[in-house]
Write a protein that binds this DNA or RNA. Sequence first.
DNA 1: GCCGTTTTCGGCCCGACTGTTTTCAGTCG
Length: 586
Amino acid sequence: MAESNQEIASFLREIAVYKELAGDNVFKIRAFQNAARTVDTHSEAVSRLAREDRLGELPGVGKGLGDVIREIVETGESSELEALKGSIPAGLADILALPGLGPRKVKTIWEKLGVTEVAELEQACRENRVAALEGFGAKSQEKILQGIEFRKTTGGFFLIPEAMESARQAAEELRASGLFIHVDIAGSLRRGKSLYKDADILVVPAEKSDPREVQARLLAMADGFPDDQRGVIAAGETKVSLLRGGMQIDFRIVDENAYPAALQHFTGSKEHNTLLRSRAKSRGMKMNEYGVFQNDEPLALRTEEDVYRALDIAWIPPELREGAGEIEAAEKGELPELVRRRDFKGMIHVHTHYSDGLHSIRELAAECIRRGFAYLCLSDHSRSAFYAGGLNVERLAEQRAEVDRVNRDVAPFRVFCGIESDILADGSLDYPDDVLAELDFVIGSVHSGLSMDPAAATERLLRAVGNPWLTMLGHPSGRLLLERKGYTFDENAVFGALAERGGVLEHNCHPRRLDPEWDSLKKAGALGIRVSVNTDAHSIRDFDTLEYGVTMARKAWLEADQVLNCMSVEEIQGFFEERKAAAKRG
DNA sequence: GCCGTTTTCGGCCCGACTGTTTTCAGTCG
């Protein structure tokens, strides 16, 4: 039996990949991809929809996909997927993921060379056999080798800080050149993501700028970097793609009159743009990166707002542009009023030198005050986290006493004393109830025994969430970006329990965690779960990462009244006290 | 495979760039 939405979605996604390799109809493939996204982000358990014969409620799911989903739910298998696997080697999916290789070329490689694994492909390239294929050449072969090499090192992805720094630096250099009237970071960096493959920078040359000079200036952006971290990927009239410091940057060059449409277009996402263009078409218009056209006549657009207005909808914040219901919401005038950085009144989930943090309670409080926060919620590691200097009961009491002393000095600023309690293997918390009762709040996090199967993980989390002393669930998936995947669990079950008990879900905005991913966070928000955007700071410098959390919260459609640390100090104190009173009642 | 204030069949977004081609297929976003 396949119970969770994620499991069902991964089946559909796998079928789509195999169908691509099989050379199936592209629209059919897209139908499976769309259905996977729909299932993944649906806030109700799709297995339940299947049992109640309500799969038709899912947009993009008709008879065919309904049958496929039903079989997955009932048997935990898909005969369609099994059939595809029987005729297509699994290794081809890895080859398909390489840059520059689509289904047609992978098919050629497989049929003509018998290559079915990345390692075999690498060898074939080195033996010059790929270049000899029809439709390939020396350059394609070199590009494939580079792609394989690139994936071996970084996986081809960058964390937010590196990607943002790289893009901001490039944009600054271009602005300083005086050749451009606009230099904007667009693409996924503008929309917000947890990982980045590249950066998109939109440039509008000044009227007097010579196009050749513009292109030369852009090409020079790779200068000064080590040879293995630089290169020209593409150099056209409207697009220059470079490898700069190991990261790909795409520069898009447009005229000033196309700027609004281009900014919209190059911000994406692909899914969002596809839906928008489809909307334009159904209204007798056409849109592309150069404008919105009616009868081939460009509409007058001055801002990005105008682009959306031309399609009869309100401007959509970039973070929402994922083709995940934002256009329908805009059409109905139901776009959320997204939370902003200035709505945040408190810093939550901060470690002190009592465990593995760098600073004292007073230092952290002073820094929060300096940054305009009204409160600070401390949560050091619990006793089982000995590797991180977790606090035993005595140490915890000492910290509690110091917090009380500090609070007398910093009022009306307030320090709350909590704990980041390990969720033990059996799902219990790390202290007895009478110790937990002394604290203002409890974050429960899994730090050990991460290799659980989904059923065990779900059980463990459900037990923790069911503990009345747990205030919030910390970094729920346990993932470390670019390092480890984390465990999977049934989100609908765990979030459902959290919603029922009025528990809070942490979004841990450490750039290596960003846990949970935005789509899961969105699902939680839709279920009415309050979210806390937590820096998990171990030093004052980590306070800056709140910026990433704000982006993810916005991406998850959250409004200020859904976010715990947007509460005033009085409100959050009341919230903690109420939770504790309820826990005492049992 | 889905879907329908043009439609139950015939659409399904649009353009740029590369590489290998002598006019364009494949890939990408």
